[in-house]
Design a binder for these strands. Structure first.
Length: 458
DNA sequence: TTTTGAGTTGTTCGA
DNA sequence: GTCGAACAACTCAAA
């Protein structure tokens, strides 16, 4: 029996899914397939992989309820399709496009084995739809976003549940690895919908005001769900734009801007794939980074002696998620204070983050390091103390993630090394013994960093 | 072709 | 405490 395959990669949803819709429209029975790519699933599974596996288990249940099934295979995708092709008459494979260099290479290989149709959907506007009048890609966010906003919405029509479901039941086969659920990020459709509804009803109008506060629950908390397509960016945009006309538009506008940033970095990775391996700006390819494994480890462990940095790094290590503001603070600290190559940070974040995305992560790190698309002013060196005071005024974010600092009064919480000896005694907390002294002096590193960047650009 | 305005999310200093 | 200016020079985007 001839079939169409819906090849699931990072679009784990049954509604408003262009790849699934295209497979359905082919008229052939649709066989949903997920391939556990041996090159992506090697070794112990990180949080992101565990989230993916859990979300897949949930998707499999949804498929079962709808009278369909999920086929799971393991190996190299091209080889998997070759063997599938031998047993089944695969008319065509439908999948959502993916712009990472690895994914593009993988899809190119697969397309030599089976007819492959890639559909839109990873981004709201495809990378080659947002271009300058002369046909070249934007490299600065603001003009990119102006153009983005001026374009008509590409796909507003969300399909009704059930409308495009695969209706033919194949014997389910293959199994998913047993994984520990990711603490704090329940990987189900239901959880995604609940979070979205709560964010839209309770927090989005205050988003512009609260998003930077590390001590508040002001962000959407949707990133892992968008990362794996449990929520589609197209649908989110439709919701925002539809409701923006009525109420509290500022928070909505600012949140939409974050989705545009996501598109922007996907576009950068698509048009400039070399950013995966180094600086976007050639003049910053030769910064004399420090080789300092001890400092790098202290950063990873949240033991730098700067409370805001340490709180953030421990939040990451504990939960797999970090507040956006904290991502900037820790990235600035690694690159500008410790003068350690941003690629070390990029790798660590990809190791730890449940929402880690190659395009956004790379773009964010290059922005922080000043090597990226932004015309990075040389003076953009975050002061980790000031940032802490500004975005965690009472130090509650710090107290949450750095338990040894819990008893410290507000006035010293961002600079525990300044606690007077008498207060140390009454608190029973000695900086240097119970919590690290700063591993670098922020006041001193500035000159070193400026010199290193100057050395690269001349 | 030339010109002009501008560039995510900062920091510091001095009035 | 607040506020505005300085902090390089460069490249990009658009008129």
């Amino acid at each position: 029996m001839p079939v169409a395959i819906w090849w699931i990669r990072r679009d784990l949803r049954l509604t408003d899914n262009p790849a699934l819709q295209a497979a359905r429209k082919s008229g052939y029975p649709v066989m949903p397939v997920f391939i556990l790519d041996e090159r992506l699933m090697a070794g112990p599974l990180n949080r992101r992989q565990r989230f993916l596996i859990s979300a897949l288990a949930d998707l499999r249940e949804q498929l079962h309820r709808e009278g369909s099934s999920l086929l799971i295979r393991e190996g190299k995708p091209d080889e998997v399709f070759l063997s599938l092709f031998k047993k089944t008459e695969v008319v065509r494979v439908f999948a959502e496009e993916d712009f990472s260099p690895y994914a593009r290479n993988r899809d190119e290989k697969v397309s030599r084995i089976v007819p492959l149709t890639l559909t839109k959907g990873l981004t709201i506007h495809p990378p080659d739809a947002v271009m300058k009048p002369d046909g070249s890609p934007y490299t600065i966010f603001t003009p990119y976003s102006r153009k983005w906003v001026s374009l008509p919405a590409p796909f507003l029509a969300a399909s009704v549940p059930g409308e495009f479901l695969p209706t033919n039941r194949f014997p389910a086969s293959g199994s998913l690895p047993e994984v520990e659920p990711v603490n704090g990020s329940t990987a189900t459709r239901e959880e995604a919908e609940t979070r979205l509804a709560l964010f839209l009803s309770l927090r989005i109008d205050e988003y512009a005001e609260h998003r930077d506060r590390m001590d508040r629950n002001g962000t959407s908390g949707l990133s892992p769900y968008i990362r794996f397509g449990l929520l589609s960016p197209g649908r989110l945009t439709a919701i925002i734009r539809q409701e923006a006309a009525d109420v509290g538009t500022e928070g909505r506008r600012v949140w939409l801007n974050e989705l545009i940033w996501r598109d922007f970095y996907q576009s950068i990775l698509y048009h400039f794939p070399y950013v995966k391996d180094g600086a976007f700006q050639p003049k910053f390819r030769h910064i004399p980074w420090r080789d300092a494994p001890g400092d790098l480890q202290a950063w990873k462990d949240g033991l730098t002696g700067y409370p805001a940095v340490d709180a953030a790094m421990r939040q990451l290590k504990t939960t797999g998620w970090m507040h956006n503001r904290a991502r900037m603070i820790t990235a600035s600290f690694l690159t500008k204070d410790l003068l350690i190559n941003w690629q070390e940070g990029e790798r660590w974040f990809m190791d730890q983050l449940v929402d880690g995305d190659p395009a956004s992560n790379n773009g964010g790190w290059q922005w922080a390091a000043g090597t990226g698309t932004d015309a990075a002013p040389y003076f953009r060196i975050f002061n980790p103390i000031l940032q802490g005071k500004r975005f965690d005024p009472q130090g509650n974010y710090i107290r949450r993630w750095v338990p040894e600092l819990r008893p410290v009064p507000d006035e010293y919480i961002h600079e525990p090394w300044t606690i007077p000896p008498l207060v140390q005694t009454s608190l029973g907390l000695v900086p240097g013994r119970d919590y690290p002294l700063p591993i670098v002096d922020h006041g001193q590193v500035k000159e070193r960093t400026l010199a290193a960047y100057r050395a690269s650009s001349t």
